[in-house]
Design a protein around this nucleic acid. Structure first.
Lengths: 162, 162
DNA sequence: GCTATATCCGAGCATTTTACTCAACTATTA
DNA sequence: TAATAGTTGAGTAAAATGCTCGGATATAGC
């Protein structure tokens, strides 16, 4: 399990998707504009997320991505794992380069720690993140903007599709 | 806070150091031989660890590195932070590229998550890792080897220095 | 059917990071 | 004085990051 800016981008994008998914599919162009991530990079990330069955795509105009399952069922760990392809190549896979089993044990120990981190992030769902106070403030601001008829830039309202 | 193989190397090396530190300074050559990490790379890692005051160096023959403080006082987070130089450059540092404060909030949220991970790893000390069952088995094997007069390869006993 | 929208898909590419080598220098011990 | 071992810096191949560009495919609305 690796934790880099790549995973951060993925979590941010998925969070954006979670916030706007109730109004129909969200296009990558929207996420790109809102989150400042390049469209092509998002395409690559979402290709992985789709392969891991975290999101579903809707092609054509008004299309985009939606979550495959509810926000409560998607953990941060799943998102990070989806884009990091951690082969976790422990350099002592049965080979003889582990002197007296010592190296293997240290690696084992690290995997142990890695598992703990993984379990920790598995307990945090997108729903948990969305439920936070800061994000709620944004959501409400967006809702009120919808009520007054003002539409967010670069965001096509596709509620008529649903 | 980033979590890559670099941090993994650092934790592994520090763990090796923690296991052998009671017998005097541990040379990087020893760690290199035991853990299969190149000497030059270890030098770079320990330069950082020294700057962060996690280890102290002893120059000259029989020298090496020892922990600056006890294993209970060094957390995994400290070790990872020492080598990852996470500038954590949030791309919206007061600049105007955050549309309507929304991007900033998402970044804020990620930092929030990042803090949680950091706090989690801060609670795991080297002593905690050493106390694990698997590593205890290695320690005891090494201890018994010392009792029978057999010395680990590449490891100079410097107990007379202490 | 045509067009605009959007996902898909692959190639390529500049930059950074990783993990390492090599070389020289300094401090310390015996 | 010789051997050890940290210290420093330069360089480097390979990988990962974070994109661009070009095109293909699917679909909604006209």
């Amino acid at each position: 399990m690796r934790l880099t800016t790549k995973g951060r981008y993925a979590v941010t994008a998925m969070l954006d998707l979670a916030l706007h998914t109730d109004k129909g599919p969200v296009s990558l162009a929207d996420i790109s504009a809102r989150q400042g991530i390049s469209l092509s990079y998002l395409e690559q990330l979402f290709a992985r997320l789709r392969q891991c069955n975290l999101v579903q795509s809707v092609r054509g105009p008004g299309g985009g991505y939606r979550l495959s399952v509810s926000t409560a069922q998607i953990s941060v760990a799943q998102v990070v794992d989806a884009v990091s392809e951690s082969l976790d190549a422990t350099r002592c896979e049965g080979k003889g380069n582990c002197h007296e089993g010592e190296v293997c044990l240290t690696h084992h120990l690290w995997e142990n720690l890695s598992d703990q981190i993984h379990r920790f992030l598995s307990d945090i769902s997108l729903a948990d993140l969305v439920a936070r106070g800061e994000i709620q403030a944004v959501k409400e601001r967006q809702d009120s903007r919808l009520h007054t008829g003002v539409r967010p830039e670069n965001h096509i309202i596709v509620s008529e599709i649903l």
